[in-house]
Design a protein around this nucleic acid. Sequence first.
DNA 1: CCGGAGGCGGACCGTCGGTCCGCTTAGCAC
DNA 2: GTGCTAAGCGGACCGACGGTCCGCCTCCGG
Lengths: 193, 193
Amino acid sequence: MSEHRAERADATRNRRAILRVTERLLDEHGFDHVSLDKVAAEAGVGKGTIFRRFGNRTGLMRALLEERAVLLREAITSGPPPLGPGAPPEERLLAFLDALADLATRNVALFAAHERACAEDKYADPIYLLWHGHVTALLAAARPDLDAEFLGHTLLAMFDADLVRHITSNGGAARLTGSLRALASSLLATQTA
Amino acid sequence: MSEHRAERADATRNRRAILRVTERLLDEHGFDHVSLDKVAAEAGVGKGTIFRRFGNRTGLMRALLEERAVLLREAITSGPPPLGPGAPPEERLLAFLDALADLATRNVALFAAHERACAEDKYADPIYLLWHGHVTALLAAARPDLDAEFLGHTLLAMFDADLVRHITSNGGAARLTGSLRALASSLLATQTA
DNA sequence: CCGGAGGCGGACCGTCGGTCCGCTTAGCAC
DNA sequence: GTGCTAAGCGGACCGACGGTCCGCCTCCGG
């Protein structure tokens, strides 16, 4: 079992061009008005190239979000506390929510596109699964009496792109972060019967 | 300003046929696999008829949900407590969540379709607006110190069709209702600083 | 420099939401 | 019953899209 041969130079160039163009078009026109034909044309590649690299529209959006989310993933799995292991679960949870709010705020268009692309079976999306697993584990550790799985979905639902846009455009990033912390605090403060 | 002339008999017949067929196809195949051509064919009408009555795909889904939601709307605006006016906001909120959970559970496919159809600008949807206004008002009345608008979205996000499907298929309707009440109770129990 | 595997690209396809307009029919006045 | 008319009807038609396919080209190891 050897590694696959390294990616060819033109393939790398094209992959990067596609990602950059997609990102820009998403910001400029929104998910619904970005067709893969346009991406291909602007990136100067054929449509086939996009499908070869990313499988389909959904795969492209996933790759894009993955690119933006990789630092956060590393931070929570092996970075320093409070984001990484070591801090008490309550602190890690709040730190994670802050970090995700930051990511969402800075990449609203991308979050929106990813949601739409994964609308069918969103709970099977690898990134969602990772985040949900993390949040759920922390919740369960802090409050074993609650339905942590359900509440994990609750917390993550707050990163819906439209909601982020709506809240931040009417209260700024601080409102999102603040309301998120208040919500999480309420849950964590629940008396154990 | 007189009323519009009454709907013609054939128009009524067709409207009903379209709604019934759409509902059935949605249950059988899911939103993504129900095209308006199929609906038209199965309902025995032309495609133009659908657009004439409902404007577009989104309008059709809205009309369908509206039909299912009208009783709930009447119950909360003018029905007896605890759903209607009269009971304290905490009780009304819990009653509303129970009722909505019931509606969502019984019409998952329809909820899913409605979400997808309204994905662009979901916060402008009349039904969502009504529900959100109701929940927000009750929350604000019970806990003026919280960000009721944000938490209104939080609570309503729990009726996402995929989440409902996931939770009820692994814990039954009781799990949804229970977790929902626990969530709402946490929020309502929050100390006023 | 050369061979061929891997990558490329754009013509092509099936399907969909939505439009358009000539035809039909319900419902009213008499 | 008859005739008139506006409302309603339906399906051919359109443009756009996601996705496929395959002959051609290019990169890279030897």
